[in-house]
């Protein structure tokens, strides 16, 4: 997608997907190192990266500040299972097995709870691979808006 149309795109998940596609080139998946903060600018803080050393319980490699969970500080040893429940980050990492099964980016939107407040979130998980075949990591992005309790 062109820079102009990308700037006009107001949905985080589509902006990130377009970047991912650009980085793919002729490959099925872009390499892990290709996704850099400069590429995603303001979106970077809404992103996270999971390393699939254990596909059933991936390890966080990066968590953007917008997805930080108060009272829980992530480290590169933190795993998805360690992430507190009822948070946006937990909701955004909840469909890892589907991405690994389908081997394509998956975008999900749903209601959830974040810091004890009902939210409407949208998240995307994108496969990354250094050899273009074996998925070694997942890149994710998510954002949300608070909704009234009765809507939730």
């Amino acid at each position: 997608m062109s820079q102009q149309s990308q700037a006009a795109e107001r949905r985080l998940v589509l902006r990130v997907l377009a970047r991912w596609q650009e980085l793919c080139g002729e490959r099925a998946f872009p390499p892990r190192e290709s996704l850099a903060p400069a590429l995603l600018e303001g979106d970077w803080e809404h992103c996270f990266c999971l390393v699939l050393d254990d596909p059933h319980n991936p390890r966080f490699d990066y968590v953007g500040t917008a997805l930080a969970v108060p009272g829980w500080s992530w480290s590169r040893q933190s795993r998805v299972a360690d992430c507190p429940d009822r948070t946006l980050l937990k909701a955004a990492t909840g469909f890892v097995p589907r991405v690994l099964a389908k081997r394509i980016p998956i975008c999900v939107g749903d209601r959830a709870m974040h810091l004890e407040r009902p939210i409407m979130f949208r998240a995307i998980l994108l496969p990354l691979s250094d050899d273009g075949e074996r998925i070694e990591a997942l890149f994710g992005a998510a954002n949300c808006r608070e909704i009234a309790a009765e809507d939730g």
């Binding site: 998940v13 589509l14 596609q21 389908k102 394509i104 980016p105 998956i106 975008c107 999900v108 749903d110």
Partner: peptide
């Protein structure tokens, strides 16, 4: 290419 749960997206 990608999977969505919303038609517009």
């Amino acid at each position: 290419y990608a999977l969505f749960d919303e038609k517009t997206l």
